[in-house]
Amino acid sequence: MRKFSSPVIQALNNYVYIYSHPVTNEIFYVGKGRGNRIFSHLDEQSDSQKVKYLADLVLSGLKPNLEILIHGLEDEKTAFRVESSIIDLIGIKNLTNKQSGYKSATFGRMSLKQINALYDKESIEIDETAILIRINQAFRYTMSEIELYDYTRGHWVLNPERANNAKFAFSVYEGIIQEVYEIVNWYKAGTTYNIRQGNENIKRNELEDLETRYEFIGNLASEYIREKYKFKSVEHYFKRGNSNPIMYKNV
Rank of each mutant, 00 (worst) to 15 (best):
K3D: 07
F4K: 08
S6W: 08
Q10D: 13
A11L: 12
L12H: 12
N13E: 13
N14M: 06
V16H: 00
Y19S: 01
S20H: 04
V23T: 10
E26L: 08
F28T: 07
I38K: 05
F39R: 05
L42N: 08
E44T: 09
S48I: 02
Q49T: 12
V51H: 06
A55Q: 14
A55N: 14
A55T: 10
S60L: 09
G61D: 06
G61K: 09
K63W: 07
K63M: 12
L66W: 05
H71C: 14
G72N: 10
E76N: 10
R81E: 00
E83G: 00
S84G: 01
I87E: 01
I87F: 01
I87H: 01
G91N: 01
N94L: 05
N97Q: 05
S100W: 02
G101K: 01
K103P: 01
A105G: 00
A105P: 00
M110K: 15
L112W: 14
Y119H: 02
Y119D: 01
D120V: 12
K121G: 08
E122Q: 15
I126F: 04
I126D: 06
E128V: 11
E128Q: 12
T129E: 13
T129F: 05
T129N: 14
I131V: 15
I131N: 08
L132T: 11
I133W: 03
I133N: 07
R134W: 03
A138W: 14
F139W: 14
R140L: 00
M143D: 07
S144H: 05
L148F: 04
D150G: 03
D150I: 03
D150R: 05
H155F: 11
P160T: 08
E161Y: 06
K167V: 06
A169W: 03
S171I: 02
V172Y: 11
Y173E: 10
I176G: 00
Q178I: 10
E182Y: 02
N194W: 04
I195E: 12
Q197C: 07
Q197F: 12
N199S: 12
N201A: 12
I202K: 09
I202C: 02
K203S: 11
K203R: 15
L207E: 13
L210W: 09
T212F: 12
Y214G: 06
I217V: 13
I217T: 14
G218W: 03
N219M: 11
A221D: 03
S222A: 09
E223K: 15
K230M: 06
K232C: 11
E235D: 15
E235Y: 13
H236R: 15
F238I: 15
K239M: 13
K239G: 09
R240T: 12
G241R: 09
N244E: 15
N244G: 10
